[in-house]
Design a protein around this nucleic acid. Structure first.
Lengths: 188, 188
DNA sequence: CTTATTATTGACCAATTGGTCAATAATATT
DNA sequence: AATATTATTGACCAATTGGTCAATAATAAG
């Protein structure tokens, strides 16, 4: 009884996300989003809402895809130490490739948007909690004490985020490796 | 033989810095800077250059003042453990106060600007190195091996930056404390 | 006092910003 | 085929963006 969408919603959000990821919220114009998505402004507004809503949708998509990919790396075989190592190595890897300049959209959103946009802050908080819980799960087999697992997970999340800041700031790659090594030292 | 400046340069840069610190580069307009500094646009351009130059000057001022204040906390009495504790406690402290929303301008600059502005990236790199060296210095008495001091310092800088991301993202304060505690565990 | 030099001022600019809307198009139901 | 409903389109908007510049003011040197 109505005209259907002419586009795939997820596909469009994926393209919007990439722009916000690379440029940040403020540096991204609606024109950029129009160009990246192939839709026109009116369609974007009609389907998703204003620029803040687009950003929030992009952030949620990042959670569902990229953060989830990170969490997936914590599954599978190996000791906690080996699992966490995979997390840090993925940062080192992407730093070496050095093509995409976005870094981590979650960190970017935390620093650029969380303080001024409540929904973004909530999303950031939720995703951090999710990441922390996944790390706790990865530690579960070897770290019996729940509180200790939680505090270790918090610590690892911090170091992981810190490394993302270093990487984007152009700090020597060795600093990332050093961080990784000291973190692993505290793990079974 | 010429008209002298009618303003104190450092004072003006301090006011500009606060705006960039709180809002970021893109979200700050020249109007914001005009309002904060009390100068007019022409004077700002004449004295410092364009918006990017203003930002860079602000970042350098942040290094000279706020980062230096952090480094100063590493001086004085106490074990390395106690010194580094002071660094993390200052973040916990400012999180509790919760008034100023800027977080750490160095981290903000790294994520928002380093990837797209070479001079900013260089300044970020330089300041990170300076911070790392100061931490090495704080470890020197107890950590004889230079390489070990360097890698420990890199690790601490990461955790410190990570904690700034967590803080701005609204993560529970306990995560910052947990990070602190695990870091200190690796220190003499 | 005159002059050379620099600082300050505010009007001005084209370009871009995020956002709206009436007209049109496409569909599913009846 | 007619209709109701939603999607798409692109022209349009006021406001703001970063930046410029000629006129004016203030000073130090001669």
């Amino acid at each position: 009884m109505a005209r259907p969408r002419q586009f795939d919603e997820t596909e469009v959000i994926e393209s919007l996300m990439k722009v916000f990821w690379e440029k940040g919220y403020e540096a991204t114009s609606m024109q950029d989003l129009v160009a990246a998505s192939g839709l026109l402004k009116g369609s974007l507004y009609g389907a998703f809402g204003d620029k803040h809503a687009l950003y929030l949708a992009a952030l949620k998509h990042y959670d569902r895809t990229r953060i989830q990919a990170g969490i997936d790396m914590l599954d599978g075989d190996g000791s906690p130490r080996q699992k966490i190592a995979r997390l840090f190595d993925s940062v080192i890897e992407s730093t070496k490739r050095g093509i995409f300049a976005g870094g981590c959209l979650l960190c970017n959103a935390s620093l650029e948007m969380a303080a001024i946009n409540r929904p973004v802050k909530n999303e950031v908080k939720t995703t951090i909690r999710r990441l922390k819980l996944a790390i706790m799960e990865a530690l579960r087999a070897q770290v019996a004490d729940e509180d200790r697992a939680a505090s270790l997970a918090a610590f690892i999340v911090s170091a992981y985020f810190g490394v993302r800041v270093l990487a984007k700031g152009g700090a020597p790659a060795a600093m990332i490796g050093d961080t990784r090594d000291h973190c692993l030292q505290l793990l079974p």
